[in-house]
């Protein structure tokens, strides 16, 4: 599997490189290091979210509520800051990460204890979380002037040449990578998605593992909520509306199997970067936002088709080895 995934990841790296070359032909400035760093920074939030979605998808579930969770946590962060500007920002972040994890745990509990299909649970909570934002804010916006300077400045603050926003996503990648490859619960994510029946017999609690995955995706959505609101310096009911689809798209492009059990942190990151490059490059080469949507959609379908073909090739390899062994 490792080899195959590596192939898939190499394939993505090649695709991203080809994309960059194509863009450079039209607009050479795009690949300037400073601009690439900007593109990465711009994709950071998507990366953080895709990491959480990856864990959930690995366990054969899905989290449609991530963007709504993000918006709710972002609104709460903005409201706390507007009401009590003195509260240190790291504490605000801690609170919204905890809130996000709590919202995620509601998804997890419903999937675990009531055994409701994940798509239904998160479709429901998506609506509930959005509705809650409206109840909290009474539909009002929280604008830049209501936020403290520290609140808005943190993601932009430069640290060893890169903004804190970029560093936070790097930190999230490292943390999730360690979680996935070096802890029993990370291993359980793969096992539960790969073969839930077998996982039960090996002493893994399938429901609880899924619950953990939802807590992770919720916590990361909470972090992304603060980052989003502080970066764009505005909070309202509809922020990040529809962004859940970008998150899932990033995972799918990154080779994370919707059927569960197959995927990697590298895939989620590369899938996000691929979308990020497209989103940032198309405007500079004068392609309309509507064409952007169509292009994103086409890319998703191509990615799924390529992944499906890789799986098929794998099938033939099995036959060969079965004979050899």
């Amino acid at each position: 599997m490792a080899k195959l995934l590596k192939n898939r990841e190499i394939l993505l790296v090649i695709a991203i490189a080809a994309l960059l070359v194509a863009i450079t032909l039209r607009f050479p400035g795009f690949v300037a290091p400073a601009n690439l760093a900007r593109v990465y920074n711009d994709t950071s939030i998507l990366i953080i979210l895709a990491l959480g979605q990856m864990a959930v998808i690995l366990t054969r579930c899905i989290d449609l509520s991530m963007a709504a969770n993000l918006a709710l946590c972002g609104m709460v962060a903005a409201m706390i800051n507007a009401a009590f500007p003195g509260i240190p920002i790291p504490l605000v972040i801690l609170v919204v990460v905890a809130l996000g994890a709590l919202l995620g745990s509601i998804n997890g509990l419903l999937v675990w204890k009531l055994e409701i299909p994940p798509i239904v649970v998160t479709l429901g909570t998506l609506t509930i979380y959005r509705g809650t934002i409206f109840l909290l804010s009474k539909g009002a916006w929280i604008n830049a002037h209501q936020m403290s300077d520290a609140f808005k400045a943190l993601p932009r603050t430069s640290l060893i040449g890169f903004p804190v926003l970029s560093w936070l996503s790097v930190l999230a990648i490292a943390a999730v990578y360690i979680l996935m490859t070096r802890t029993p619960v990370g291993r359980a994510f793969f096992a539960v998605g790969g073969n839930p029946h077998a996982a039960v017999y090996t002493g893994i609690d399938v429901g609880r593992t899924r619950f953990f995955a939802y807590c992770l995706s919720g916590g990361l959505a909470g972090l992304a909520g603060y980052l989003w609101v502080s970066r764009y310096a505005v909070a309202y009911v509809d922020i990040a509306a529809g962004f859940e689809l970008d998150i899932i798209a990033a995972c799918v492009i990154g080779g994370i199997s919707i059927a569960g059990g197959i995927g990697s942190v590298g895939g989620a990151v590369l899938g996000s970067l691929f979308l990020g490059v497209i989103k940032n490059a198309l405007p500079v080469i004068n392609i309309s936002p509507f064409a952007q949507l169509a292009i994103s959609g086409t890319v998703i379908i191509i990615a799924v088709a390529v992944n499906a073909r890789t799986e098929k090739r794998k099938g033939r390899v099995i036959l060969k080895k079965a004979e050899a062994v």
Partner: peptide, 18 residues
């Protein structure tokens, strides 16, 4: 087939899972 090996995990991870 259904309740035994976890396809997608390498051999050693299958063995050590419990």
């Amino acid at each position: 087939g259904r309740q035994g090996a976890i396809i997608g995990l390498p051999i050693f991870q299958n063995v050590t899972l419990p």
